[in-house]
Amino acid sequence: MLPTDLLPVATQITTLIGNSQKILVAAHLRPDGDATGSVSGMVKSLLKAGKTVDAALLDGVPERFAFVFPQIELIRQPIIDSDHDLILILDSGDESRTGFTFNRDREKTCLVNIDHHASNTMFGDINYVDTGASSACEMVAALLHHAELPFDSEVALSLMLGLVTDSRSFQNEGLRHTAHLAAAKILQTGVDTSPILNMLNSGKAEADLRVQGFGLSNFRLSCNNHLASLVVRHSDLTRLNAAFGNVFGSGLFNQLLSMSDTYASVVIFEREDGMSFCEFRSRGGIDVKEVAVAMGGGGHVPASGCSRAVKIDELAEEAIKLMTRQVETFFAGQKNT
């Protein structure tokens, strides 16, 4: 499952894990299925290998993904005074994306960056970055297999969650064959994937659907219908008896791309504390990562995001302006080829 060029760094990490007893595993803020799945899968495997393991997710485990997470106490304070032998940061393009400050003795504690985002800043002492991987869970599956660490059905359930959600059920454009090899390895454990399927197909809350209905009634099209945009204010969520998390549960980010002429979308929404967020999606090769990075975020060519402590109208104006330029430039280039 491992690309040949990553074998040396994977072997280096394998040795580090073998020589470490106390290990910390962390991932990014507002964890999605891939962050939750990769952390929980890694933690489960390391615990089964007899390691002492801590897990850190500043925003906690989303309720809809809690079924994969082991019964351990999460570290959630923003400053971690680490006495660990090893820190593994998963699915994070930059150390700051975790929301944590890791105070560590760099001579004692090695920090390993395991990620698949093209915008990764190579912040680790060791960087295992594979931008062709479908997900961090694919990378963790390959690493556990390479290291011959425990890989049973409990570990597999966690890793399948991230593999399915981050690949959009294996529908992402340019999906590499290694995603399917990881899935095969996972399924060989005999894992029961029905909890994941139930969560995806019948696990929505009423408020998720109300937000979805609001979005489908209020999005706007521009750029000859190639760009869909939607603004969801906190006041809208309050009126719908919904919360910030229901925006993620609504499925709107990808659903706006289901129209035949629409190749890019941006959803701008706000949290109750005034923090504003953008989620960008695309198909057909439009690079939304460039827009996200320009706005202080990051991600992948077809799926990226950013957040800022600014008013939602300000962020929306900038995001729609940049996305409009990105879409118009893309289609102008198509006409010239």
Rank of each mutant, 00 (worst) to 15 (best):
G203L: 04
S167M: 07
L216A: 03
S169P: 00
D166G: 00
L197E: 11
L175R: 07
H177Q: 11
L187H: 06
E173K: 13
S217I: 02
K185H: 12
L181Q: 14
G174W: 05
G203H: 04
F214D: 01
S194H: 13
R168P: 04
A207L: 09
G215S: 05
D208A: 04
S202E: 13
L216I: 07
A205S: 12
H180F: 15
D166T: 00
H177P: 08
A205T: 12
L197A: 12
P195M: 06
V164D: 00
K204L: 10
R168V: 13
G215E: 03
D208S: 05
D166F: 03
L197I: 15
N198G: 07
S169L: 10
L200N: 10
A179S: 09
Q188F: 11
T193I: 15
G190K: 14
V164Q: 00
G213M: 06
G215N: 04
P195N: 13
V191D: 01
I186G: 00
N172S: 12
S194M: 13
Q188R: 08
S217R: 08
D208L: 09
S202I: 07
H180L: 14
G190R: 14
L209V: 08
T193V: 14
G174F: 07
E173R: 06
G215K: 06
V211K: 05
F170S: 05
G203F: 15
A182R: 01
E206A: 14
R168F: 06
T178N: 08
F170R: 07
G215F: 02
F170T: 06
R176V: 07
N172W: 09
T189P: 15
K185V: 03
I196K: 01
H177L: 15
T178Q: 13
M199W: 04
E206T: 13
T165Q: 03
L216E: 13
T178H: 05
Q171M: 10
A182G: 07
R176N: 14
S169C: 10
D192I: 14
Q212C: 11
K185F: 05
L197M: 09
G213P: 01
M199C: 10
G190F: 15
N198D: 14
T165K: 10
K204H: 12
V211E: 07
V191W: 10
S194G: 05
L200Y: 07
G203I: 05
R176L: 15
A184M: 15
V164T: 02
I186L: 15
N198H: 13
K185S: 14
G215H: 01
V164Y: 00
T189Y: 04
L197Y: 11
S167T: 09
D208E: 09
V211S: 05
L175F: 05
A207Y: 08
Q188E: 15
L200T: 03
E173A: 15
D166K: 03
T165V: 01
N201R: 10
D166A: 02
A184Y: 04
F170M: 07
S169I: 05
P195W: 13
L200F: 06
T193E: 08
L209Q: 10
T178S: 13
G213C: 05
L181M: 11
L209E: 08
A184F: 03
I196P: 00
H180P: 00
S217E: 14
R176P: 01
R176Y: 11
S169Y: 12
